[in-house]
Amino acid sequence: MAKQLYYEDVEVGIDIPTLVKHPTTQQLVKWAGASGDYYQIHYDKDFAIATGLDGIIVHGRLKIAFLVQMLTDWIGDEGKVKKLACQHRGMDLPAVDMKCKGKVTNKYVKDGEHCVECEIWTENPEGRKTAPGTATLVLPSRGK
C-alpha cells in the first residue's frame, strides 16, 4: 500500500499518478453483472452495431469507477473523495489501454477541511479525453 498523502505534499499543477486499465470484454461482462447494467451495447456486438455503433463499447460508469480507483489509490487510507463529476465525451473500445489521469487545479482549507480540487479524465490510445471530470478530495494535514 502506498504511503499516506498529506495536504502539504500537494501543489497546484502536479499530476496524479496515472492508472492504466485494460478493460477486456470479459471485464465488461463482469461489470455488467456486478453493477446491474445489462444494456446490450456493452457485450452484444450485433446489438451494438444495430444501434449505430461500430461495436461493443466500455460502460461510461466503469470508466468513472476506474477514475475513483485512481483517486483512492492516490489519497491513501486517510483521504476522502468529497465530490466527483464526470461527463462522457467519447466512446472507448474494449481491449485497448485506457489511461486514468488527473491534475491538481486548486487547494484550500474550508470549514477545517484540507481540500484539493483536481481535473480528472480517461484517455484513449489516441490521447483523446473520453471521460473528463473534476474531483474534490479531502486530505489529512501534517499540521493537525
Partner: peptide, 30 residues
C-alpha cells in the same frame, strides 16, 4: 469504494420515463 454509486443497481440513473426513444447514452453524473 465511492465508485459504487456509479453502479446501475444503486439507482443512480433516475426514474425511467416511458417514451418512444429506445437508444440510451449516459451523459454524465456528479
Amino acid at each position: 469504494p465511492p465508485g459504487i454509486l456509479a453502479a446501475s443497481l444503486m439507482g443512480g440513473s433516475g426514474p425511467w420515463l416511458d417514451i418512444p426513444l429506445q437508444r440510451i447514452l449516459d451523459g454524465g453524473s456528479e
